[in-house]
Deep mutational scan, measured.
Amino acid sequence: MALNTPQITPTKKITVRAIGEELPRGDYQRCPQCDMLFSLPEINSHQSAYCPRCQAKIRDGRDWSLTRLAAMAFTMLLLMPFAWGEPLLHIWLLGIRIDANVMQGIWQMTKQGDAITGSMVFFCVIGAPLILVTSIAYLWFGNRLGMNLRPVLLMLERLKEWVMLDIYLVGIGVASIKVQDYAHIQAGVGLFSFVALVILTTVTLSHLNVEELWERFYPQRPATRRDEKLRVCLGCHFTGYPDQRGRCPRCHIPLRLRRRHSLQKCWAALLASIVLLLPANLLPISIIYLNGGRQEDTILSGIMSLASSNIAVAGIVFIASILVPFTKVIVMFTLLLSIHFKCQQGLRTRILLLRMVTWIGRWSMLDLFVISLTMSLINRDQILAFTMGPAAFYFGAAVILTILAVEWLDSRLLWDAHESGNARFDD
Rank of each mutant, 00 (worst) to 15 (best):
G188C: 05
V121N: 05
M155S: 06
T327H: 10
G246M: 09
L414Q: 06
P390D: 07
R245F: 08
N310M: 13
L130R: 01
L230F: 12
P87M: 06
L353Y: 09
D243I: 05
P24S: 13
L283F: 03
R62S: 13
L23M: 11
Y138N: 01
S193G: 14
D181M: 03
I371H: 00
A196E: 07
V406D: 00
I400M: 09
E296K: 09
F318R: 00
L165A: 13
H184N: 08
I253P: 01
T298G: 03
T387F: 07
R348P: 12
G389C: 01
L213Q: 06
D427F: 14
T11I: 13
I351A: 13
L401I: 13
G171R: 00
D35P: 04
S286T: 06
R260G: 06
I322M: 10
G302N: 01
A223L: 12
A49I: 08
L77T: 15
L66C: 10
I177T: 05
I19K: 11
I316V: 12
V102F: 14
K13P: 11
C54D: 03
I287T: 08
L94P: 00
I299S: 13
G127T: 07
Y138G: 04
P151M: 02
L230R: 08
V329A: 09
G315Y: 11
L414S: 09
G235I: 13
D227V: 11
M103P: 08
F74S: 15
I172D: 01
E21N: 11
T358M: 13
W92N: 02
R294S: 03
E42V: 09
P41G: 11
M356A: 13
P87S: 06
Q180P: 00
N291L: 15
V179D: 08
G142F: 05
N291K: 13
L156G: 07
R260K: 06
L78M: 09
N101K: 02
S309Q: 05
T202N: 15
C236F: 00
D427E: 10
A385S: 10
G292Y: 05
S338F: 14
G61I: 12
S65I: 03
V329Q: 12
A183E: 01
A196W: 09
M164E: 05
V125E: 03
Q108S: 14
L40T: 09
G292E: 02
I287G: 02
T67F: 14
V232D: 03
H90I: 11
S119K: 02
F326G: 05
L88Y: 04
T11L: 08
S338K: 11
F318Q: 07
R30M: 15
A314L: 07
F395M: 11
M155P: 02
A392Y: 01
R231P: 03
N310F: 12
M365E: 04
L149V: 13
Q295V: 09
L257T: 06
L205F: 08
L373S: 04
C248D: 01
G146N: 04
H340P: 13
V195H: 08
G361N: 01
R158C: 13
L78C: 11
W415Y: 13
L69I: 14
V195W: 06
P32C: 14
L153F: 01
A312G: 09
D63S: 15
Q186R: 14
N422A: 15
S305D: 01
E419C: 15
A392P: 10
I288P: 01
A71W: 11
Q382R: 08
F369V: 02
G173M: 07
E407W: 13
Q382I: 14
Q264R: 01
R250D: 00
K328V: 00
I371M: 09
I371N: 00
R68Y: 10
L263D: 14
A272F: 01
R348H: 14
A392S: 07
D426F: 12
G118P: 04
L149D: 01
I330S: 11
V163T: 03
